[in-house]
Nucleic acid binder design. Structure first.
Lengths: 239, 239
DNA sequence: CTTGAGCATAAACATATGTGAGTGCGGCTA
DNA sequence: TAGCCGCACTCACATATGTTTATGCTCAAG
C-alpha cells in the first residue's frame, strides 16, 4: 500500500520517482501508539518527525485550570510535528485519539533532503503551510462564527481531508472522536457540542452515530458552516 | 539601516555574509501602502511576497455577516505572505493598519533561493513555522482563556515581538491599533475590548493611552495571560 | 471658532454558551 | 451474567460576552 503522505503530496504537485523513493527511504522505523497516549510531549526536542500512517491524532495545549485546546486534528498522511525539524522545541503536545501507526523520519534525513532535493523540500514546506492555513481558518471560525456554524465548518473540512486520502466511503467517513474532544477542538463545552450536533441532525445536514459520520446535505452544510475549500490547497500545481 | 528581516532571522540562527547579501538582493522594489488599504487581497495569486519594513499590518478574513477576523498581526521584519510562494492562492487578505513600507520579493527569486541556498531556505521556512506557532497559541487563547486573559496574552506577545525588532523603548511600545481592530483580533466586540482594557488598567498591569502601550507589571501580566514565550522561538540555534 | 469624523467610553438589556448534577445506554471484563 | 465505565444526552440555572444606543473627547478640515 502506498504511503499516504505521497498520496497527499501528489494531490498538490507532481512527484518524480526519485522523490517518491527518497520519501519512502526517509522512514527510519514504524511504531504503534495506543489511543490516549502522547506521541510527542510539549517541551520535547525531538530528533525525528512523526508521520501518521493510520489513525487519528491531535495537537493540543493545556491551560492553567486544566482545560485543553486542540489546535489541530490529524488524519493519515499528515505529519504531526514536521515543524519540530526547525522549531526544535515542541510548543504543544500530540496525542493519539485512536491507535496510531506512525512512521518516524529523522531530522538528519530531513536536513539531507533540504540540501539535495529543492523541489521535495518545497513540498514539505508546503505541507506545513497547509497546517498554517487550517489554523487561520479555525481562528476565523472560532472568533466569528456561531458554535453551530463552527461545527459545520469543521465537519466539512474533516470530510474533505479524509476523502482526499481515500478514507471516505461515499458520503460517510469514520470519525472516532468523542464529543468532549470535539469540544476541546472548537473551544466549546461538551454540553454545547451535544446541543449543536443535535441541531445539525435535526436540520437534516448530517447523521452521526457511533463513529460513522454521514453528510446528508453537503450544500446546506457548507452554507451553514460558511465553508470554502480553498485553504486546503487541493489543487495540483507546479510548486 | 539593516533590513529588519535579517535582524529577525539572526535572532534564530547565524547568517553568513553571502546569505545576508542574497536576502538584500532578493528585494525587487519598495513600495508604500497607506493605512486601511489592502496590501494583498483574498483570492489573489501574487507573483511576489511582501516583507514589512515599517508599519503595522494584519491578515484578515471576512465572514458572511460582514464580521471580520484578524488571524495575524505583523510588525516590521515580518513577511506578510511568504506562504503565497507555495500556497499560490491567498486564503486571506492583508491590510495596512498604518502607513506601511513594504519590500517586494519575487517568487522566482524565492525559487532560486530554494534551489541554491538550503540553509537560507530552512530559515525562510522557519519564518512561516513561527507564524504557525503563533496561530496555535492564538487558537488556545481564544478557545480556552477568558477575554481578559486573552488580551493580556496578546499584549505580552506584541511587546516581545516589537522589542525583538528594536521597537520598544524600555517598557513602552507604540501600538497604533484601535479597540475595534483588537476586537477583530481577539474575536470580541469592541465594547468588551474596552471593558477588558479597563480591567487591565485598573489592575495596574498596563497603561495604554493614544498609541503608547506601557507594561507596568510584566510578571503579573504574564500570569494573567498565561503567557510563556517558547512558541516565539526567540532562541538562537543551528537550524 | 465651528463642524464633523473617528474613537473611547458608558449603561441597560439580550443571549449564546457554560456549569453542575444527573440519567441511561452499550460494550468490556470479571 | 453481573457490574462497571465511558460516553451521549438532559435539564435547570448561571454568566461571560454581545447588542444597541448614546455621550464626549480629540484632532483635522474648513
Amino acid at each position: 500500500m502506498t504511503n499516504p503522505l505521497i498520496l497527499k503530496l501528489e494531490q498538490r504537485d507532481q512527484l518524480s520517482d526519485e522523490e517518491k523513493r527518497t520519501l519512502e527511504n526517509a522512514i527510519s522505523r514504524i511504531r504503534v501508539v495506543e489511543a490516549d497516549e502522547d506521541i510527542v510531549r510539549e517541551g520535547d526536542r525531538p530528533a525525528e518527525s512523526s508521520l501518521l500512517l493510520d489513525g487519528f491524532a491531535a495537537r493540543y495545549k493545556i491551560v492553567s485550570n486544566g482545560r485543553r485546546q486542540i489546535s489541530a486534528l490529524h488524519v493519515p498522511g499528515d505529519f504531526l510535528d514536521l515543524h519540530s525539524f526547525l522549531l526544535k522545541t515542541m510548543d504543544h503536545g500530540v496525542l493519539a485519539l485512536t491507535t496510531c501507526r506512525i512512521a518516524t523520519v529523522p531530522h538528519t534525513t530531513l536536513e539531507k533532503i533540504t540540501d539535495e532535493y529543492p523541489h521535495l523540500t518545497r513540498l514539505l514546506w508546503l505541507n506545513t503551510l497547509i497546517d498554517g492555513a487550517i489554523h487561520r481558518e479555525w481562528l476565523t471560525a472560532m472568533g466569528r462564527l456561531s458554535a453551530t456554524a463552527h461545527m459545520a465548518h469543521l465537519i466539512c473540512e474533516l470530510y474533505l481531508r479524509l476523502r482526499a486520502v481515500g478514507r471516505a466511503e461515499g458520503d460517510t467517513v469514520q470519525l472516532p472522536i468523542t464529543q468532549a474532544e470535539l469540544g476541546d477542538t472548537l473551544g466549546l463545552s461538551t454540553v454545547h457540542v451535544n446541543r449543536v450536533l443535535q441541531e445539525l441532525r435535526k436540520e437534516g445536514l448530517i447523521r452521526f452515530q457511533g463513529d460513522a459520520l454521514t453528510i446528508l446535505d453537503w450544500e446546506r452544510l457548507k452554507t451553514v458552516g460558511e465553508f470554502t475549500s480553498t485553504y486546503l490547497s487541493l489543487q495540483n500545481e507546479d510548486r
